[in-house]
């Protein structure tokens, strides 16, 4: 496994990764309402089986409970959250103040994203912000942490100690700039990456090879994103409707060839097989299992993929 690296924050995820273990993270979407139990229920389910849990920030521009509140709920449950922040909805003042808010609850992981365009969500007529873009947000969080200063230049009393992450989509166009873009994010200060869900393993391996060629896998922890198919319909939807998603035809065919009642199980098998194959790829430091509205299956996946029990770090 990769060698030890210095730990800069109290983030459990950073410690696990620095210790060279394969990290496992998951994701859950906060409710479209104020009921906290949705978070606590999902938190408890994932607690034993993953190291940290991402909380999405108004994913696909659908208005939901804010990511910060859900993270605080998880924190109170003893589950380490990853605060996702999109630059679509807040300008630089709101972003910095939310980071401080999260830091005050010792939330130590943040994922910087541009966010989906508001026309996908429930308020297509709304104005978007995009004061910063995702890379500039990475710079901002690292500046607040390492320099202890606001963007405006003033000092921050008790600066936030966040382990900074970002997303990466090896399958979006134009393919030839996807690795340079990762390099750019690293230059901006990103420390861990959670990739888009992987179905085209060949293309991912090619991307990883190019990452390794530039030695980027030693500069950033890369977590391979996975989403098991519940049924053939979901596979077809992901292939055609979700931008930047690369679902090869043979995977879709494999799903649609299996009879209806067995398709969920087949989806999980594909996920497990992918994890086995991803384990062999040098530079993959862990898995980000996004079981959208299927969180209950994460334990089974983690167990069957031989990633259980989770390592203990102090």
């Amino acid at each position: 496994m990769s060698q030890q690296r210095a730990v800069k924050t109290d983030s459990k995820l950073e410690k696990i990764l620095a210790a060279g273990h394969l990290a496992v993270t998951s994701e859950c979407g906060p409710p479209r309402g104020s009921d906290p139990d949705v978070i606590t229920h999902k938190g408890n389910m994932l607690k034993e089986y993953v190291d940290v849990v991402n909380i999405t920030d108004n994913q696909t521009s659908m208005t939901r409970m804010c990511s910060l509140a859900a993270c605080i709920r998880l924190k109170q449950l003893g589950v380490e959250p990853v605060l996702q922040m999109v630059t679509r909805d807040r300008n630089r003042i709101a972003l910095q103040s939310d980071i401080l808010g999260a830091a005050s609850f010792d939330i130590t992981n943040v994922l910087c994203l541009s966010g989906d365009h508001q026309s996908f969500g429930d308020c297509p007529n709304g104005q978007n912000v995009h004061d910063l873009d995702s890379m500039q947000l990475i710079q901002t969080v690292r500046y607040m942490r390492d320099e202890g200063k606001f963007l405006g230049g003033d000092d921050i009393k008790r600066p936030p100690k966040m382990f900074v992450g970002a997303a990466a989509n090896p399958f979006a166009d134009p393919f030839e700039i996807r690795v340079p873009r990762l390099a750019k994010k690293i230059a901006a200060g990103v420390e861990f990456i959670q990739t888009q869900c992987i179905y085209n393993l060949d293309k991912f391996e090619l991307w990883m090879k190019q990452v390794r060629d530039r030695g980027l896998h030693e500069k950033v922890y890369i977590l391979a994103g996975l989403t098991p198919f519940k049924n053939a319909g979901m596979a077809k939807y992901m292939r055609s409707r979700v931008p930047g998603m690369d679902v090869p035809d043979d995977v879709v065919k494999r799903m649609s060839d299996t009879p209806k009642e067995k398709q969920a199980e087949e989806g999980l098998n594909i996920c497990i097989e992918s994890i086995e194959r991803l384990k062999q790829i040098e530079g993959v430091h862990g898995f980000h299992i996004m079981a959208i509205e299927w969180e209950e299956k994460v334990p089974e996946i983690v167990k069957r993929a031989g990633l259980w029990p989770r390592p203990e770090v102090s």
Partner: peptide
């Protein structure tokens, strides 16, 4: 569409914007 200054974002497919 999202005024990304360090693009392209993850949604760019075959030269077209995700929207």
């Amino acid at each position: 569409a999202k005024r990304v200054l360090n693009g392209p974002c993850g949604g760019s497919t075959k030269g077209s914007c995700e929207i």
